[in-house]
């Protein structure tokens, strides 16, 4: 399954490293990373594949939430279908 992870919040050292480590522990493969500062907010979008993971998207989401709390940023994972539904015909 393909999903998108969004990370938003105040920029600081080590956000990408920590998120990537969490994902590696969940056996989630990062396929693409896009990172920018939007109106002063650190904004990162990751395209990921979860086929090798034996965790559900809810479990991965819970791990990422904990990770976000430690970093002081908001992290969420969503199945790609919601983005496809909204933005492509």
């Amino acid at each position: 399954m393909k999903a998108y992870i969004t990370v938003m919040g105040k920029d600081r050292v080590g956000i990408i490293a920590k998120v990537a480590t969490t994902l590696a522990e969940c056996k989630v493969n990062i396929e693409d990373i896009n990172q920018t500062i939007l109106q002063g907010t650190f904004t990162m979008v990751m395209a990921v594949g979860t086929d090798e993971s034996n965790m559900t998207i809810e479990e991965i989401g819970a791990e990422l939430k904990n990770c976000g709390q430690e970093l002081g940023v908001e992290i969420a994972i969503r199945h790609e279908d919601i983005f496809n539904a909204m933005h492509s015909i």
């Binding site: 998108y4 969004t6 969503r78 919601i82 983005f83 496809n84």
Partner: peptide, 16 residues
Amino acid sequence: MINQREIIETVKMIGE
């Protein structure tokens, strides 16, 4: 392929 702007738009629609 969905672009980053569209992804952020969806996330903001839901979150904010």
